[in-house]
């Protein structure tokens, strides 16, 4: 199924084009912030990273439930892709946030709810990847990693809503009303671009995983000589 789809490369190229435009506008066209100055430009990658990471993990949840329900390899592969891309984005998110925090808050890190739940989210999903790598039997790996992913997903709504539910150092979500209109455009462009790039990466990763799962399944491994050129 996945093999026939080449759409993801268009999605990826489109994402790359938009991210170049969005970043250019964000860095050189949009105004500096009144108090944060140029540091605030980190927002144009930080917020898109956060959105796309959360969407990745939401997709992981859907894929994990589907994988448990249907026991199809395709969902297992999509889930793996989602987890890996989500982890990469979350790791980037934490580093960008830390740099921004040093400039504005004055500290690299603080055990505030937003930061803690985000770090926990990264560790939880890395744990799922680790679990996968240790299980050899395919069915069991699919089931158990789906279960671990579903359990890990409990943290995802917490990451998003915690700043509204509890007092934190991290500011709550901004909205177009709280952001200067000239800053909204690069933010939106980069958000769309990050999402497209994330979809692209998930699709590539899922294809790799699916190929691996099918190779695992093959009754007799093909002679290696064919592939070595």
């Amino acid at each position: 199924m996945i093999e026939r789809l080449k759409w993801h490369h268009f999605v990826g190229l489109l994402g790359l084009a938009i991210v170049v435009a969005g970043t250019w506008i964000g860095l050189f066209v949009a105004p500096a912030e009144r108090h944060m100055g140029d540091v605030m430009r980190i927002m144009y990658v930080h917020v898109p990273s956060a959105w796309s990471a959360l969407l990745c993990f939401t997709f992981v949840f859907v894929a994990a439930v589907a994988s448990l329900w249907t026991s199809r390899k395709r969902w297992d592969a999509y889930m793996t892709g989602g987890i890996e891309v989500g982890c990469v984005l979350t790791a980037l998110l934490l580093v960008q946030g830390s740099i921004w925090a040093r400039a504005t808050w004055g500290v690299w890190w603080d055990w505030d709810v937003r930061l803690t739940t985000s770090l926990v989210m990264l560790l939880l999903f890395c744990g799922v990847l680790a679990l996968r790598s240790f299980i050899e039997e395919a069915n069991r790996r699919a089931t158990w990693s789906a279960i671990a992913a579903i359990v890990a997903f409990v943290d995802v709504p917490l990451v998003y809503f915690c700043v509204r539910w509890w007092r934190s150092l991290h500011q709550i979500q901004s909205s177009p009303e709280t952001v200067n209109s000239a800053m909204v455009l690069p933010l939106r462009l980069n958000a769309v671009a990050f999402l497209l790039i994330a979809i692209w990466m998930i699709a590539i990763r899922a294809r790799i995983e699916l190929a691996r799962l099918q190779a695992e399944d093959a009754p007799e491994p093909e002679p290696l000589a064919i592939e070595e050129r």
Binding site: R34, H35, M36, V39, V45, S49, V95, I99
Partner: peptide, 17 residues
Amino acid sequence: GVIAGGWSYVIAAYSVT
């Protein structure tokens, strides 16, 4: 109350990404 010379932070964050 205004951060001056924040470009180094911006460059760091964008290059990491």
